[in-house]
Design a protein around this nucleic acid. Structure first.
Length: 279
DNA sequence: TGTTATGTTGCCAT
DNA sequence: TATGGCAACATAAC
């Protein structure tokens, strides 16, 4: 599922392929709700003739500035895909939107589960949409002391706190499980009970797993592909995500990994390396 | 063949 | 405010 490393992988390819290209036309398919509440003809009128600026990423959002103070704000949610294809390529499965570019290519948006969106917003609305996000985990503002401040007095499990995009932007189920394993912290630990050393290890672990995933161009667990249709290579390096349920063994201690539900999400961890702190 | 898990975000209830 | 549950949706796997 697209989290920070996957979205950034998409952004880097779009930066190569679409910057400076003009939108010459728009094609919708069966699901026009992909652009939100906006009328499709309005969307068409707004974006036709506009030039695509340099794509930006904020958390799991992509934002592509257009001329005239507009921006395309895109979220892939769980199964959304952005693809760069020739104008004359047939629609892909679950394609909802095609932006025809003057380069002879299309920027296509496809999404099996129809949760993802491509919104055309004015600069003010675009800014508002991203303003609620917490700091970027790979920037300095996301520090051990920041995490300590946000976790202070909170009783919710640390995993839930890390998944909260208002606390830190861009983490999802995969990298939270991976980071907690690397930091040797039990996902159920009440956030407010973490020690200073926990905060430090956790921030370092989050940065490590995200950087590694970026180098591998993301994790393809089920459906993620980059705009060229290529899979990420990071799945081979996962330590716990997707392994607890199958009863696989921990790469550190060789005991069996555990699988449980936490906050409605599947959660894999090692009960030996990530023990619950004693009450 | 029916049931369940999948995971992101926003909305709702407590 | 903090927290938890669930809907939105389509499919694969059981």
């Amino acid at each position: 599922m697209p989290e920070l490393p996957e979205v950034e992988t998409v952004r880097r390819i779009l930066e190569q392929e679409t910057v400076g290209r003009q939108i010459t036309g728009v094609t919708f398919h069966d699901f026009q709700g992909v652009i939100g509440d906006m009328d499709p003809d309005t969307f068409r009128a707004l974006v036709r003739g506009q030039t695509l600026g340099c794509p930006q990423r904020r958390g799991k959002y992509l934002s592509i500035p257009l001329s005239e103070g507009l921006a395309l704000v895109i979220h892939l949610r769980m199964t959304g895909r952005l693809l760069v294809l020739p104008n004359d390529a047939a629609p892909v499965r679950f394609e909802h939107l095609a932006l025809h570019l003057d380069s002879g290519q299309d920027l296509r948006f496809a999404d099996q589960r129809k949760f993802g969106r491509v919104l055309c917003l004015d600069a003010y609305s675009a800014r508002a949409a991203l303003a609620r996000l917490g700091p970027e985990p790979l920037e300095r503002r996301f520090s051990a002391s920041y995490l300590a401040q946000m976790a202070s007095r909170r009783t919710a499990p640390v995993k839930n706190v890390l998944l909260d995009q208002r606390i830190v932007a861009g983490l999802g189920n995969i990298y939270v499980d991976e980071a907690l394993f690397r930091a040797r912290i039990n996902p159920f630990t009440p956030a407010g009970t973490l020690t200073q050393d926990d905060h430090r290890r956790l921030v370092r672990a989050i940065r490590y797993v995200l950087r590694a995933a970026l180098l591998n161009q993301g994790t393809t667990f089920s459906s993620f592909e980059n705009p060229y249709g290529e899979q990420g290579r990071n799945a081979d390096f996962l330590q716990v995500y997707g392994k607890g349920k199958a009863g696989q063994r921990c790469g550190r201690c060789d005991n069996e990994l555990a699988w449980t539900k936490l906050g409605g999400r599947g959660t894999s961890f090692c009960p030996t390396c990530q023990p619950m702190p004693t009450q």
